[in-house]
């Protein structure tokens, strides 16, 4: 998981039609897209989607749990964390 800066900056898969994909996503979500804002929103969508391969690792153990998993503590009367 180490390497020089930028080594793992990945572009979106070649040939992916972000504009068509974006239109389907927004329609499914019920989000109106102002016409003048569409081009920038598609570009922003493509940039965000290009990040998602970096979240995945082939050798990640199944026991690698999300940081949001709660660790309950006995006697934690207010639901807050003791450190």
């Amino acid at each position: 998981m180490s390497g020089p800066a930028g080594q793992d900056r990945q572009d979106a898969p070649a040939g992916r039609d972000h504009a068509a994909e974006f239109d389907r996503v927004m329609a499914r979500a019920g989000l109106p897209v102002p016409a003048e804002w569409r081009a920038g929103t598609v570009a922003s969508y493509a940039e965000l989607m290009a990040l998602t391969p970096l979240l995945r690792m082939a050798d990640r153990p199944v026991g690698s749990e999300p940081s949001a998993v709660y660790r309950m503590r006995a006697g934690d009367d207010e639901g807050t964390k003791d450190v």
């Binding site: 929103t41 922003s44 965000l48 989607m49």
Partner: peptide, 12 residues
């Protein structure tokens, strides 16, 4: 415009 363009794409 910027705010919309930064947040709305997360629908995907």
């Amino acid at each position: 415009r910027y705010t919309y363009q930064r947040i709305a794409p997360a629908a995907g």
